[in-house]
C-alpha cells in the first residue's frame, strides 16, 4: 500500500513539472509585454524601462528564468506582484482558504443532496420519483453556473430581498450576529456550486447503482431474505460508490472552473477572482502562480481519488 502511494506520488511530480514548464513557456513566449503598462507612460523613459526589466530579471533567457522561478516556487516563493508590489505567496495565502472553503462546503452540500437522491432514483427505477430526480439532475448540470448565480441573485436578492449578493470579506465571525451575516452571504455562492455538484453526483450514483442492482450478489442477498433497505444500503450502495470516486476526481477541473465563475459573480475574494483581476492587470507573476496552484489542486485531488479507489476496492492491484 505504501509503495502504491509512493509510486503514484512519483507520477504526480513529473506531471506537475510538465504542466508548470508548458505554462511558463506559454507565458514567456506569448506576444504580451509584462511591462506594457510602463510603455504607455510618457514619464518613464526607455532606459528606465530597460533598467526595470533588468531588475525584474526579464532580460535573461526564459528557460533560465523558468529554472530560477521553479526553484523559488518549490520553496513557496512566487515572486512579487507587478501591480500590488506585495509578495505573490502572501496574496495566495490570503485567498486560497476562501476558495477551498467555498468549494469544500459546496461539495459536502452536493453529497448530502446527491446520496439520497441517487439511491432513491436507482432503487425506484422508472417510477415518478426516478423521473423527477433524473430530470432535475439533468437540468442541474445543463444550467451553466453563471446563469444559476444570476438567477439566484434575481430571485433572492432583488425580488425577495432576503440575501445580499455582494460578499463582504471584512466580515469575521466572533458572535452569533456575525455568524448569521457570514452564513447569509455564503448561501448563494455555495448553493450555485453545491447544486451543480449534486446534479453530477446524482447521475453518477444512479448509473453506478443500476449497474450493480442486477448482479448475482444482490440476488443472493434478496434470496436469503434481507430487507430491501439493507440490500440497497449495505450491499449495493457500498459497491456502487467505488467507481463514483474516480468519476468525481475527473470532475475536479470543472469544479474549480465553477469556483472561478462563482467568485466572479458574487465578488468572493478567492483565487479565482484573483486570477481574473490579475489577467486584467497583466500581472504575470500572479497569473503564473494561480494557474500552478490550480494545477496542484487538480493533480492532488486526482491522486487522492486514485489512492482512495485502491483502498476501497480490494480487487485493484497495487502496482
Amino acid at each position: 500500500m505504501g509503495r502504491f502511494v509512493a509510486r503514484r506520488l512519483l507520477v504526480a511530480i513529473p506531471t506537475l513539472l510538465a504542466i508548470s514548464f508548458v505554462m511558463y513557456a506559454i507565458l514567456a513566449l506569448a506576444p504580451i509585454d509584462p511591462l506594457a503598462g510602463f510603455a504607455a507612460d510618457p514619464r518613464v523613459p526607455p532606459e528606465v524601462r530597460e533598467n526595470i526589466r533588468r531588475s525584474l530579471g526579464l532580460d535573461e533567457a526564459w528557460p533560465y528564468r523558468y529554472v530560477k522561478w521553479l526553484l523559488a516556487a518549490v520553496q513557496g516563493n512566487f515572486g512579487i506582484s507587478f501591480v500590488s508590489r506585495s509578495s505573490v505567496s502572501d496574496l495566495l495565502w490570503q485567498r486560497l482558504p476562501t476558495t477551498l472553503a467555498v468549494v469544500g462546503v459546496a461539495y459536502i452540500v452536493g453529497v448530502i443532496i446527491a446520496l439520497p437522491a441517487g439511491i432513491l432514483s436507482a432503487a425506484r427505477r422508472n417510477t415518478v420519483t426516478d423521473h423527477v430526480i433524473s430530470l432535475s439532475a439533468y437540468i442541474g448540470f445543463s444550467v451553466p453556473t453563471f446563469f444559476t448565480g444570476v438567477l439566484l441573485i434575481i430571485i433572492f436578492s432583488i425580488k425577495l430581498h432576503w440575501l445580499t449578493f455582494l460578499y463582504d470579506s471584512r466580515v469575521t465571525v466572533h458572535d452569533l450576529d456575525s455568524l448569521v451575516v457570514q452564513i447569509k452571504q455564503s448561501i448563494m455562492p455555495i448553493a450555485v456550486l453545491g447544486l451543480f455538484d449534486a446534479a453530477i453526483l446524482t447521475r453518477y450514483i444512479r448509473a453506478s447503482m443500476l449497474e450493480n442492482l442486477p448482479l448475482d450478489y444482490v440476488r443472493t442477498a434478496h434470496a436469503k431474505g434481507l430487507a430491501e433497505r439493507l440490500v440497497v444500503l449495505r450491499h449495493v450502495l457500498r459497491n456502487s460508490l467505488i467507481p463514483v470516486v474516480t468519476l468525481v476526481a475527473l470532475g475536479v477541473p470543472a469544479v474549480f472552473g465553477g469556483a472561478i465563475v462563482t467568485e466572479q459573480i458574487f465578488h468572493v475574494p478567492g483565487i479565482g477572482a484573483l486570477l481574473i483581476t490579475s489577467i486584467g492587470n497583466g500581472d504575470t507573476p500572479v497569473v503564473t502562480a494561480v494557474v500552478l496552484i490550480f494545477a496542484v489542486l487538480v493533480v492532488g485531488f486526482n491522486l487522492i481519488a486514485d489512492v482512495l479507489y485502491a483502498v476501497l476496492d480490494p480487487r485493484v492491484k497495487y502496482t
Binding site: G257, I260, V291
Partner: peptide, 12 residues
Amino acid sequence: LSLPVLPLLLVL
C-alpha cells in the same frame, strides 16, 4: 486531463 482547463483557457 489533469490541466486546470478554465484557468488555462483564460490565460491563453
